[in-house]
Amino acid sequence: MIAKYLETGPNHLAAAVKALPLGGRNDDGVDHRVVDWAMGGLAEPAARDVEARLHGYLQEAADLGRSYAKRQCLLWLVACVPVLIVLAVLLTRPA
């Protein structure tokens, strides 16, 4: 549980993104339609389908980045707590 928050550094993120499947096992989502699209051989409707698929893969990665960032952010906020406690103690201490 704690590791879920602790292991959210940039390197952890890069590894997690790398482990994302591209449409199934063995990156099956990058199939010959994607190849045809890259070659410029697809017309608008088919190209839109392929682009939507790729967009989905990027969206997944972005969501993962956001999720890791939120957890990392939470860690920083947690780190704020002792600082704020010390601050509160200092401010409430009788002069």
């Binding site: 890069a14 790398k18 591209l22 790729l54 960032a69 860690l75 920083w76």
Partner: peptide
């Protein structure tokens, strides 16, 4: 190329949220 693009957008999203906590 798709993998590289994924890393790029993930890093961008990561950077956008990280500043709040920091």
């Amino acid at each position: 190329r798709v993998r590289a693009a994924q890393q790029q957008v993930a890093r961008q999203a990561y950077g956008k949220w990280l500043w709040l906590g920091r």
